[in-house]
């Protein structure tokens, strides 16, 4: 296996374009684990460690954020500027695995891996984030909602990589919350609910909800949010919205919980997530 350590994004992209079996190495928290398990055998790794343009968090003038792909989960979890609705992303990063893994793993790596049981995909969909993609031919941007396509499968084409994530300006007064249910502290979610919520005059004035570990991609349904909008988040509204989300879910059966159990968690975790967000809104 060859190993390259380019210092610019263009150089990294050229190396990836030259070898279709090469993979970009971000932190390695997932890729090295998969190599250790003999699940992937790349012909070469292109380390992004020294690509400076992937390592910054920029606050945009309008209040949004642009976060470089190589920002670690630990750095994201410590980013005090991520408040309001975008707090959901900070909270999700703080719930990934353990300190040792958060120091290694990166935002871009987790997004590119596209594991629906991991924490960031649902949070990014709830925050209406956009994924910046760099490729040999061009740069493009895909909404987080359209980026995740299937288990471990994303909109990334061969030779492309995630270069940054942008978080939008959230509605005035919005609060983000990430609710995760896992068997042990730091485990993969049995189910998770990411929510960005704003209230006005006691009624829900903005809401985006995405479920993690509920299917091949984060699960978000317009009708569920429509049911919550304008409501006072009463038990009926939450129950109906949860039923719509559960209907759209198709979770796996595994050691972290049966599909049936995961579906049973949907109304409970949605209720908790909304209550927590409302408490802060």
């Amino acid at each position: 296996m060859d190993f390259y350590q380019p210092t610019s994004l263009d150089a990294a992209l050229a190396l990836l374009a030259a070898d279709p079996e090469a993979l970009p190495l971000a932190g390695g928290a997932t890729l090295v684990a998969m190599m250790n398990a003999d699940l992937v055998e790349p012909s070469a790794l292109v380390s992004l460690r020294d690509v400076a343009e992937l390592q910054t968090i920029e606050a945009a003038a309008d209040g949004g954020f642009r976060i470089g792909a190589m920002i670690s989960h630990a750095a994201l979890a410590d980013e005090a500027r991520l408040g309001g609705g975008n707090e959901v992303v900070r909270q999700a990063a703080a719930r990934i695995a353990h300190p040792q893994v958060r120091n290694i793993g990166t935002l871009g790596g987790a997004v590119a891996h596209g594991d629906p049981s991991s924490d960031l995909p649902a949070a990014l969909v709830a925050a209406d984030a956009a994924i910046e993609i760099a490729g040999p031919a061009a740069r493009r941007v895909v909404a987080a909602e359209n980026f995740f396509e299937d288990y471990l499968t994303t909109a990334l084409k061969p030779g492309e990589m995630v270069s940054a994530i942008t978080l939008p300006v959230q509605p005035e007064g919005a609060v983000g919350h990430y609710e995760k249910f896992a068997r042990v502290h730091g485990g993969y979610a049995t189910l998770s609910v990411a929510v960005v919520l704003a209230m006005a005059g006691g009624e829900c004035s903005h809401v985006r909800v995405a479920l993690g570990a509920a299917g091949a991609t984060p699960v978000r349904v317009d009708a569920a949010e429509a049911r919550l909008l304008g409501s006072v988040l009463d038990a009926d509204a939450v129950r109906d919205a949860a039923a719509i989300l559960a209907e759209a879910s198709d979770p796996i059966d595994d050691v972290r919980g049966s599909a049936e159990y995961r579906l049973m968690l949907v109304p409970r975790l949605l209720g908790r997530a909304l209550a927590a967000a409302e408490g802060g809104a």
């Binding site: 003999d38 091949a216 796996i252 595994d254």
Partner: peptide, 14 residues
Amino acid sequence: GRLAKFGLGIMKKK
């Protein structure tokens, strides 16, 4: 073998 490490949940969906 090695693919079994990957977990039967996703494999069954696939």
